[in-house]
């Protein structure tokens, strides 16, 4: 019998393949290693990220699901909750105990009940509604708050870039 982390990841992969949530595709990069996944997230409709397809990489720890995976966008992103190198900063990805921004209640942290699907759905809603109180990207947070037009412009440029359309 394979390790419990592997079995759970395989179960999640199966579930995601059979019933994919709308606008989300995810799966292991290579079926020999289930601990590195690739995900494609479409920008939620009615937001400045609408129409974009954003690739991201998920890396699972050996003790998944006891510890949360790490998620990083592999395309350029400009968003208050995404670091400039693409790492995603949302509370569901933080194990209770560590609190990088000092504002999250433990109720919204990682627990084994969470899953890849829930993470990706949270990320979609994060794209739609940035939390400008936790500035992973302070410039983006500032712009989101004070100069929404400019923010939307940058977001639209990123969307076009992910689709391969020249500016």
């Amino acid at each position: 019998m394979a390790g419990s982390a592997l079995r759970r990841l395989m179960a999640e992969y199966k579930q995601l393949t059979l019933n994919p949530p709308e606008g989300i595709i995810a799966g292991p990069v290579n079926e020999e290693n289930f601990f590195e996944w690739e995900a494609l997230i479409t920008g939620p409709e009615g937001t400045c990220f609408e129409g974009g397809v954003f690739p991201a990489k998920l890396v699972f720890p050996p003790d998944y699901p006891l510890s949360p995976p790490k998620m990083q966008f592999t395309c350029e992103m400009f968003h208050p909750n995404i670091y400039s190198d693409g790492r995603v900063c949302i509370s569901i990805l933080h194990a209770p105990g560590d609190d990088p921004m000092g504002y999250e209640s433990s109720a919204e942290r990682w627990s084994p009940v969470q899953s890849v699907e829930k993470i990706l759905l949270s990320v979609v809603s994060m794209l739609a509604e940035p939390n400008d109180e936790s500035g992973a990207n302070v410039d983006a947070a500032k712009m989101w708050r004070e100069n929404r037009d400019e923010f939307n412009k940058i977001a639209q440029r990123i969307v076009r870039r992910t689709l391969g359309i020249p500016n």
Binding site: G3, A5, L6, M10, E32, F34
Partner: peptide, 8 residues
């Protein structure tokens, strides 16, 4: 360690 991660 990889043994735990790979199905093959």
């Amino acid at each position: 360690d990889y043994m735990e991660r790979s199905p093959v």
